[in-house]
Design a protein around this nucleic acid. Sequence first.
DNA 1: CATTAGCACTCGCACACGTTGAGTGCTAAC
DNA 2: GTTAGCACTCAACGTGTGCGAGTGCTAATG
Lengths: 353, 353
Amino acid sequence: MARRPRSSGSLDPRAQSILRAVIDEYVTTATPVGSNSLVERYGFGVSSATVRNILADLEASGLLTHPHTSAGRIPTDAGYRFFVESIVDSVILPPVEQLMIRHQFGQVQHASEQWFRLAATTLAAANRTAGLATAAKPRSAHVRRIDVVSISERLASLIIVFREGALRQVLVTLAGPTEQGDLTRAAVVLDELMAGRTAADAERALARIDGTGPIGGLVQHLGDRVLAAVRDYDSAVIEEVFSDGLLHVMAEPEFERSDKLRRVFAALENRAYLGQLFDSISGTNRVQVFIGAENGPEEMRDVSLVLASYGEPGRAVGVVGVLGPTRMAYPQAIGTVRFVSGLMNELVAHIHA
Amino acid sequence: MARRPRSSGSLDPRAQSILRAVIDEYVTTATPVGSNSLVERYGFGVSSATVRNILADLEASGLLTHPHTSAGRIPTDAGYRFFVESIVDSVILPPVEQLMIRHQFGQVQHASEQWFRLAATTLAAANRTAGLATAAKPRSAHVRRIDVVSISERLASLIIVFREGALRQVLVTLAGPTEQGDLTRAAVVLDELMAGRTAADAERALARIDGTGPIGGLVQHLGDRVLAAVRDYDSAVIEEVFSDGLLHVMAEPEFERSDKLRRVFAALENRAYLGQLFDSISGTNRVQVFIGAENGPEEMRDVSLVLASYGEPGRAVGVVGVLGPTRMAYPQAIGTVRFVSGLMNELVAHIHA
DNA sequence: CATTAGCACTCGCACACGTTGAGTGCTAAC
DNA sequence: GTTAGCACTCAACGTGTGCGAGTGCTAATG
């Protein structure tokens, strides 16, 4: 029975600090925490009996639970939520860690567009959980350059560079033996026709083209392929989700039995789900936290996501984040995700400069 | 006690068929198989007592074991090895399955160099295990084409196409504001200089270049980057190992507890190990099977690999294969791996035509 | 002499049972 | 409001027991 009825939302500062202590303790030990160990390790200046009363209150408010009568308390999703709300705006990553991460990004400054992979790897390492990241993808694709390279007599590699530096390669089987010279001429025509265009523009331009003549057919053939590739790039909500450190999650005690984790991984392979999720956070630049059942899918009820989008809302956006058990170190996760997304913002800005 | 001492290597045909039956049964049920269930389901025309005698012989030969005295038999690594040797040359994938796989490959005929991904996916699906594949990588890289595209004022995307169609992209920060015109001119110089060259040749050519003049510095700067990228591509034994269907392995009862599997996954992330392994089979085009402890690393003693290389030994080779528990359906695995590697051979030949 | 029926034996597994200990909730005193 | 005290609960652990699948051995058989 709750001794003093309280309105949810506000919380006695002492109760709040005890909630924090429970979360802190549970996150590190992974075992339910009891009143005794709390006063022992945190010593609130009160006895264990008092702490017990407060714990009972917190449970009545739905912030803690009991696995069974004679066990300690563990936080509920709502408990984590309350905790996260109370810290999410104030967390700042310590300068030492900031420096370490910056250093890692410096190492590969000019290694193609692999930054998002590095972001996932960095987040995974810094949190000992799984790191996730997608490449920044523009709202609508603009073609920047088209190139055609002969691979063999009847095979050519079609290379499409998009405005932000993203790149697509398509192998094209040719109708007959074709020399690099013709391919180059066709490439020039296509390049002039499509460079700077969106998919829709490019389609209109291609429709007006003269499909006859010595290389007209070739241009038409290649143009169709370019268009398909551009549309494909355009329509995918997320191009690729790169993840790293899934092994860390496997090592967590809640996933000792692999079937739970298997379902989580299966959910992560569901593009529709991830696409929708990432889309929902792509407006804001704030760090978003999804805790356990808040994720929606049944399979995800044992894990939490800490996500942030990066990029320029009107142009290109991507997502970085962390996935771990609901029992995860939220302050650390929020801090690193915020910092890395900031870093990615800088990089995107640098590209668009 | 073995009733009749036998030399290892040859085996009574009846004993052999019983070994097969044990493997067959164990692979499907995952539980030790006893003499009774054997005669029940396979009825060899003898009683269970006789089967028991033969089982004892097979155990004495090291092909079977006992988890404990009152349990049925399970195959040892040596037992699987014997079985695999006896079938490896005769397994042919049923035409129906051949057709299904061919069909899948037909669907994406012109989707860039993603074939190896499809190979992994197909193998995973066909065997309900993990599928592995690497892209075909040439012994020594030959540059086919170099292109430079301006991304922003001080940022350019350097695109290197290799002879077999492989592609590398490097973002380059420029010393000062540079127009596409200059970049294009530099690209032409580099293209003429390096196209058709190996890394070593390209290095020599680049050393002789005139680093002065209006675009000389630019060429030099970009050239260094190209060289680094080519060397990088050259030196990596395997570029990327794509895997699919790891979830299937997670579902196997031997990996119900996730720690075993975690170690396997960790081993798979060890590039040095995989590189050496893949290198060791890259000479031959035969299907190679590595069973349990044969793999070497302690972490891999519970899994088997069925691998085959594809490509043209002198030029470009890659690897496709399957990873599963030692208790895996070897005939099916061998059949699909052989067939898919054959398919990949065709594709590589097509590229080099 | 290979095969087989019969039988004692082994040992993991499932289940029941008592013990232990951490932790709770309640009450009465401060 | 806080606290000491205490009865109570329940998972975890170790032990004991019966069950059953399966073996290995022996002696009989065609």
